[in-house]
Structure formats: structure tokens, C-alpha cells
């Protein structure tokens, strides 16, 4: 058993537990138990616990976690609103430079509407509860790192997209 083997297993396990809507606090417990157990027994994680997906399924069945209906509705609403708001914002930004109005409204108004709808989407989406390591009471450093990376990538993508839209608008204008 090597440290990277355990890390790889734990990463897959966290992902599989997330996919099955196991609460973050419980994920922290499950992961800490895996780490403690293999550190003591010297077994490879997959040997002691089976494949990450199957182990996650055992836990999901164990405590009967399901995504609640209200969470599901919020997810769908959030995704739809984010898409609609993003499209509205994109179209408006482009037309701010080229047209006098967007669908009969002042382009700045539609930009504002796009921003509001997107903010609404962020509000509607169910909050992902955080994985808490029971040994430290904190979010595991590894998850922090991957979270930061995801945020940077998303931020860069949004920025690039807005820049492209503006450039396109200027060129077309």
C-alpha cells in the first residue's frame, strides 16, 4: 500500500459518495475511517473496502440517502435559470455595442436582467454541504485545493467568454 494509492482511492470514493448524495459530514467520517483502517492494517484500500463505487453504494443504501424532491427541483430551476440568464447576458453584451435595443428594451436593461437571473440561479441551486474531516473539524486540504482549482477554471472561462463577446461586438460594430 502506498500513500498515493490511498489518495487515489479516497478521491474516487469522495466523488462516488457525492454522486449518491451522502452528506458531507458523513463523507468525512467514511474517508477518515478508510485512512485509519489501511494505515493500521497495511491493506490496500480496494482490498479492504472493495471498489470505491461499490463501497459508496453500500453507504448510500446503509443510511438511505436520496436527493429530496425539493433539492431536485432547486437543481433543475437553478440550471435552467443559469442557462437563461447567461444567454440573456451574452446576447445583451453583444448587442450593447451593435444595436440600439434588445427585444425592444434598452440593452443595459437586458444586461441587468441577465445578471439578476444568474444571481437568482446561484440562489436557487442547493448548497453543497462541505466535507468535514472529523479528526480536524475542517475541510480536508485536498478538497480545498481541488475546489480552488475549479473556481479558478470557472472564473477564467467566464472572463474569457465575456472578453470574446465584447471583442466580437466591437468587431461587428
Amino acid at each position: 500500500m502506498t500513500a498515493s494509492q490511498v489518495e487515489k482511492y479516497v478521491d474516487s470514493l469522495i466523488f462516488a459518495l457525492r454522486m449518491r448524495n451522502v452528506p458531507g459530514e458523513e463523507i468525512g467520517q467514511i474517508v477518515a475511517e478508510v485512512e485509519a483502517h489501511v494505515a493500521e492494517s497495511g491493506e490496500a484500500p480496494a482490498e479492504a473496502f472493495g471498489k470505491p463505487r461499490e463501497y459508496a453504494r453500500t453507504w448510500a443504501r446503509n443510511t438511505g440517502h436520496r436527493q429530496g424532491r425539493s433539492d431536485l427541483i432547486r437543481s433543475i430551476l437553478g440550471i435552467v435559470a443559469a442557462g437563461a440568464g447567461g444567454s440573456l447576458l451574452g446576447v445583451s453584451v453583444i448587442r450593447t455595442a451593435t444595436d440600439k435595443s434588445v427585444w425592444g428594451l434598452h440593452p443595459l436593461l437586458t444586461v441587468l436582467a441577465g445578471v439578476i437571473v444568474m444571481a437568482g440561479a446561484a440562489f436557487a441551486l442547493p448548497k453543497a454541504d462541505r466535507v468535514i474531516d472529523p479528526r480536524t473539524g475542517l475541510e480536508p486540504e485536498r478538497i480545498n485545493r481541488s475546489g480552488r482549482r475549479a473556481m479558478i477554471i470557472t472564473g477564467a472561462a467566464v472572463l474569457a467568454w465575456l472578453t470574446a463577446a465584447t471583442v466580437l461586438a466591437l468587431v461587428l460594430g
Binding site: 458523513e26 467520517q29 467514511i30 475511517e33 489501511v38 492494517s41 479492504a48 472493495g50 446503509n62 443510511t63
Partner: peptide
């Protein structure tokens, strides 16, 4: 008794 069997049992009993 593998870890994959034992820990879910412990979790259930704790719950």
C-alpha cells in the same frame, strides 16, 4: 471481516 463490511455496520449501530 473486511473493512467494507465492518464500517457500515458500525455506522448503522451508531446511527
Amino acid at each position: 471481516i473486511k473493512g467494507g463490511t465492518l464500517y457500515p455496520v458500525l455506522g448503522r449501530l451508531e446511527q
